[in-house]
C-alpha cells in the first residue's frame, strides 16, 4: 500500500522560503496564513544565528539552521483523533486531509497538533490577486486548513509544489512503503530525525541533518514513481546515489548524470503550478 512521506535535507536547505511561497501560490492560501513555514533554529529572530562573532582571535560560536515545518502527516495523528465530526481524516495513501464541508471550526485539531501546522480562517479569506491562485479552491471562513502534501497534484502523478520548487533539491517526496524509493533509501542511509519524536505521533516527514545528501534534483514535475528514468543519477537497477557512489561519481550517458562532490546536476526549471 502507498504511504506518502517527505524527506527534508536540512543541510541542503538555504532558507530561501521558496517552499513557503510556492505552497501559498499552489494552494491558494489566504493572506496572512502559511501552511508551509521555514523556522530558524538559532537566534530569536528569523535568519539570525545564536552565539557570537569571533573575538580576540577566538573561534566564535555563531550557529543557525533552517527548520522547514508544515503538517507532518503523522501516522498517529492527534488531530484526527480529536475531530468530533471526522472532518480531519487519514487517507489510504497516508495523507492527512480535511473535509472542509464537514469542518465546524471547533479548532480542537489545532490544539492537538504539536507542530502548530494548522491555521484557522477567522475572516473571509483574502487573496492576492482577488480571484486566488493555483489549482485549489479557496476554503471558506470558519474552517481550519493546512498542508495536504498537494494531494491534488499527487493524484495527477505530480510532486508537491514545495518539492518541485525547492532550488536546493532539499525536499524529496515519495512512498515510504516502497523500499526502492529515494525517501526510503535516504531514511535508511542517512541519519534522520522526526520532529518531537517523544510525543509518539510518528510524523511522515523525516529530516536529514549532520551529513548532506545529494538531494533529489527535479527533472520534471512528475513524482519519482511516475518517471521511467527514476533519478538523474540513474545507471540501472539502483539509481539512488549512495554515500560511496556519491563520492566516486559515474560517467554520464544520455539518460544518466553524475554527481561529483557538491555539484548539482542540471535540473529543468520547474513550473510554479497553476496550470499543470
Amino acid at each position: 500500500m502507498t504511504n506518502y512521506g517527505l524527506v527534508i535535507d536540512q543541510e541542503r536547505c538555504i532558507g530561501c522560503q521558496a517552499c513557503a511561497v510556492s505552497c501559498k501560490q499552489e494552494n491558494n492560501v489566504p493572506m496572512g496564513q502559511f501552511w508551509n513555514r521555514v523556522l530558524t533554529e538559532g537566534g530569536e529572530k528569523m535568519d539570525t544565528p545564536s552565539g557570537g562573532y569571533p573575538e580576540d582571535g577566538g573561534s566564535g560560536s555563531l550557529d543557525m539552521q533552517y527548520q522547514p515545518t508544515a503538517c507532518q502527516h503523522c501516522e498517529n495523528a492527534p488531530c484526527v483523533k480529536v475531530c468530533p465530526v471526522n472532518a480531519t481524516y487519514t487517507r489510504d495513501d497516508g495523507i492527512v486531509e480535511i473535509d472542509y464541508d464537514k469542518c465546524i471550526g471547533c479548532r480542537y485539531c489545532m490544539a492537538a497538533c504539536p507542530y502548530n501546522a494548522r491555521v484557522f480562517n477567522w475572516d473571509e479569506p483574502e487573496h492576492m490577486p482577488e480571484e486566488g491562485t493555483g489549482d485549489v479552491e479557496a476554503r471558506p471562513q470558519g474552517v481550519v486548513e493546512k498542508c495536504t502534501f498537494c494531494s491534488h497534484r499527487v493524484e495527477d502523478g505530480l510532486d508537491p509544489a514545495c518539492v518541485v520548487n525547492c532550488p536546493a533539491d532539499a525536499r524529496i517526496f515519495g512512498d515510504l512503503d516502497d523500499e526502492t524509493s529515494t525517501v526510503s533509501k535516504y531514511i535508511n542511509e542517512y541519519e534522520t530525525d522526526q520532529l518531537l519524536e517523544d510525543r509518539g505521533t510518528k510524523p511522515k516527514t523525516h529530516y536529514i541533518s549532520g551529513e548532506m545528501s545529494p538531494g533529489r534534483p527535479q527533472t520534471s514535475d512528475k513524482m519519482e514513481s511516475e518517471l521511467d528514468d527514476v533519478s538523474p543519477w540513474s545507471d540501472g537497477d539502483d539509481d539512488v546515489p549512495s554515500k560511496e557512489a556519491d563520492s566516486v561519481g559515474s560517467e554520464s550517458s544520455s539518460s544518466s548524470h553524475s554527481v561529483e562532490g557538491g555539484e548539482i546536476p542540471y535540473a529543468t526549471p520547474a513550473k510554479s503550478g497553476g496550470d499543470d
Partner: peptide, 22 residues
Amino acid sequence: LDDVEYDTDLGVQMARDAIRVS
C-alpha cells in the same frame, strides 16, 4: 480555543489525551 463557541476545557483535555494516545 479561547473564543471558540465550543467547550474550551474539553478541547484542551482532549488534545492532551490525544497526545497520550499517540
